[in-house]
């Protein structure tokens, strides 16, 4: 299953990377005579309400969606695991301080914060790494910043429980240092929820990107990411279902394959696998 999933995911990635070279229809060619047309040979995925080719848009937008999805997930997981692990293994004030930060981030109202971030950093990043790169970094950091807290709390909870378990006690009695304990013994055993969180975060990040572009924080409005396509299509769900169908299916397929890969990963990592 995991192998098949890797194959599909590779295919999907290859499609968005090299697809535009093969399917050369421009993404923003407006053709009012072909608006909202269902899939056909000319437009395999149909067209949207300005008559733009959906296949071309899906391929183009997929690059951004996949990149944002994975990068934001990586940020969320890395930050979350780091904070969760440190807080879970240390006690007292370090734990309290880190959990305070977690609580703070959980409590922050997202929308005003996003508007503030746009206002403060957009022009700065645009000048620093260029329009597209700046937006990409900003989006990934913002989505990551809003999604690491559950991971941190999950990892910490796992640590709290695991650090008292027999095998950890045993390793400690044998003189293992704390970093070694964490890396060799506790962390591998607490990855279960992390993998689940990671897979959920990819989907969440792809969708969150579309919300951000609505706030003017995302890519310019004419860049068709998958989440954006889904959002634009929603009002036409009963008129032109094909519009939403392919974007939804692409996100689903991505999530599905990542999950199976994740499952495979955990089974492979787990010393006591039951198969």
């Amino acid at each position: 299953m995991a192998v098949a999933s890797i194959a599909i995911l590779t295919l999907l990635t290859a499609a968005v990377l090299f697809g535009p070279l093969i399917w050369r229809m421009p993404i923003n060619e407006i053709d009012f005579t072909a608006r909202l047309s269902p899939p056909s040979w000319e437009h395999p995925f149909g067209t949207d309400d300005l008559g733009q080719d959906l296949l071309a848009r899906m391929l183009y937008g997929g690059r951004i969606s996949l990149a944002v999805g994975f990068a934001a997930m990586a940020v969320a997981i890395i930050v979350g695991v780091l904070i969760g692990a440190i807080s879970g293994i240390s006690r007292g004030s370090v734990d309290a301080a880190l959990m305070w930060i977690t609580d703070l981030f959980l409590a922050l109202p997202q929308l005003p914060l996003l508007l503030l971030v746009i206002y403060l950093f957009r022009d700065f990043l645009k000048n620093w790494v260029g329009a597209e790169g700046g937006v990409f970094i900003l989006i990934v950091l913002v989505i990551g910043a809003f999604r690491w807290m559950p991971v941190a709390r999950l990892v910490r909870a796992q640590f709290l429980s695991l650090r008292e378990k027999e095998f950890v006690e045993a390793a400690r009695a044998l003189g293992a240092t704390t970093p070694r304990l964490v890396i060799r013994h506790i962390l591998p055993n607490s990855l279960g929820p992390v993998i689940v969180a990671g897979t959920i975060d990819v989907a969440a990040a792809i969708i969150a990107e579309s919300t951000l572009s609505f706030l003017g924080l995302g890519f310019p409005p004419d860049i068709p990411t998958w989440g954006r396509l889904l959002f634009d299509a929603k009002d036409y769900l009963d008129i032109a279902p094909h519009w939403a169908l392919f974007a939804g299916a692409a996100i689903f397929l991505t999530v599905l394959t990542i999950n199976f890969i994740g499952d495979g990963l955990r089974d492979a990592l787990d010393p006591r696998r039951v198969m």
Binding site: N28, I30, A131, F214, G216, P220, D222
Partner: peptide, 29 residues
């Protein structure tokens, strides 16, 4: 940010492109 406005932007941008004008679109909440 408002769907008909983003579509109008797209239409104007495309026509400008054909006349050799490069338009960068920006939308603000």
């Amino acid at each position: 940010i408002n769907a008909p406005r983003q579509k109008t932007q797209a239409i104007v941008k495309q026509a400008c492109q054909k006349a050799g004008i490069d338009v960068e679109l920006k939308s603000v909440v």
